[in-house]
Design a protein around this nucleic acid. Structure first.
Length: 308
DNA sequence: CGCCAGGTGCTGA
DNA sequence: TCAGCACATGGC
C-alpha cells in the first residue's frame, strides 16, 4: 500500500470532471491506470491510499499524475478573475488537471469529438479489450485486502467482462496496433466515422511522423500545430490533448459547454468558437486551461438548466 | 421518438 | 478566412 500526501486536492472531483475516460469507482475505490500501471486508489482527508498492481508505480509517479506538485491556491488565485469562475472554483475546489499519457489522450479525444462522455467511455473500453494487453490484477493487495470487497470468483476462469469489481485490466492499445487494425473492426467497436481518423493518426505516431515525446518539451504553439496535422484533430481536440496530455496549461478547449459558459462574458454579442478561445486565453492567463476545466465541470453539473 | 453529445473535414463563396 | 453541411452512434 502506497500513501501519498495530497493537500488541496479532490480525487472524486478530478476523476469525474470529464478529462479522463478510463477510471471507474467501485465500493469507494477508484480503479484505473497511470500510464501502463493498473491501480486502485481512494482519498482519506489529505492522503491518497493506493494499491498498485505493478511495483514500478511509486508515490512520485502518483503525485506527478495528479499534479500534486503544482501550487493549486496560486493557480486558482490567478484565474479567479470574475464571478462565474469564482462560483465554479468555490464549488469544485480541489479539481486538478491530470498529467495523462500523451498518446492515450490524443487517441481518446479523437474518439470524443461530437460525442457524449458515456459513449466515449464505452468506445475506449471496447478499444482496450480488443487491442490492449491484459494486465494482471492479482498481486495480493489489489483485489482483496483491507476494505476492498472481494468479489466472488468468476464462474469459469476468465469470464467475459471479468476483472476486479467490474474493472477490466487492459492496457491502452499501442499506436502500431491501432494503425494495423482494420477500419471495419474499429467501426464494429462503435467508433463510427472516427475509425479512419484514429487509424490514420495512429499511423502518424507509429511511423514517427508525429513524435509524441517531443511534444512534452516544446511550447503550446508548436504542440498545437503538430497535433492539428492529425486526422480527426481540430482546434478543440488539439487543445484538449495539449492540456491533458502535454501540460500546456494555457490551452483552452472550446466545446458546446464552453460556448454556454461563455455567454456570461459575451452576453448577446455574436461569437464564434475562435473568438471565445482567444478571449478566454487573454482573460484567464497562463492557466486558462484550469479555468476551462472548472467551468466545464461547473456547467455540466452545477446548473441543471443554464439560462439561455 | 427526436434531440443532444468535450467537432472535424470538405466545399463553395 | 468563414458559413453551411454531412457524418455514426447511442444516451436520455
Amino acid at each position: 500500500m502506497i500513501s501519498v500526501p495530497a493537500a488541496e486536492f479532490s480525487l472524486r472531483t478530478t476523476l469525474a470532471s470529464g478529462q479522463s475516460f478510463r477510471w471507474t469507482e467501485q465500493h469507494g475505490w477508484w480503479y484505473g491506470f497511470i500510464g501502463p500501471s493498473a491501480l486502485k486508489i481512494r482519498q482519506e482527508g489529505d492522503q491518497l491510499l493506493c494499491h498498485a498492481a505493478d511495483a514500478s508505480l511509486d508515490a512520485n509517479r502518483i503525485a506527478r499524475y495528479f499534479a500534486l506538485d503544482l501550487n493549486l491556491p496560486e493557480i486558482i488565485s490567478s484565474i479567479n478573475v470574475d464571478m462565474q469562475i469564482h462560483h465554479a472554483i468555490a464549488q469544485y475546489r480541489g479539481l486538478r488537471v491530470l498529467r495523462q499519457d500523451g498518446w492515450e489522450t490524443l487517441a481518446s479525444f479523437i474518439c470524443a469529438s461530437f460525442n457524449n462522455i458515456k459513449r466515449i467511455e464505452g468506445m475506449i473500453d471496447r478499444l482496450c479489450q480488443a487491442y490492449g494487453q491484459p494486465v494482471a490484477l492479482t498481486p495480493p493487495p489489489f483485489d482483496v485486502a483491507d476494505g476492498g470487497p472481494a468479489r466472488s470468483a468468476a464462474p469459469n476462469g476468465r469470464a467475459k467482462g471479468g476483472g476486479v469489481n467490474g474493472f477490466r485490466g487492459f492496457s491502452f492499445p499501442a499506436p502500431d496496433t491501432l494503425a494495423a487494425a482494420p477500419e471495419r473492426r474499429l467501426r464494429s467497436l462503435g467508433l463510427g466515422y472516427r475509425a479512419p481518423y484514429l487509424k490514420a493518426t495512429a499511423r502518424l505516431v507509429a511511423d514517427g511522423t508525429l513524435r509524441v515525446e517531443h511534444l512534452q518539451r516544446v511550447g503550446y504553439d508548436a504542440t498545437k500545430k503538430a497535433l492539428l496535422g492529425c486526422d480527426g484533430v481540430g482546434d478543440k481536440v488539439a487543445d484538449c490533448v495539449a492540456l491533458f496530455g502535454f501540460e500546456k496549461y494555457e490551452a483552452f478547449p472550446v466545446d458546446v459547454w464552453m460556448e454556454r459558459a461563455m455567454r456570461y462574458y459575451f452576453r448577446h454579442r455574436k461569437t464564434t468558437r475562435k473568438l471565445i478561445h482567444d478571449y478566454a486565453r487573454r482573460h484567464f492567463g497562463p492557466y486558462a486551461g484550469y479555468a476551462q476545466q472548472y467551468l466545464y465541470h461547473y456547467m455540466r453539473n452545477a446548473r441543471p438548466r443554464a439560462a439561455a
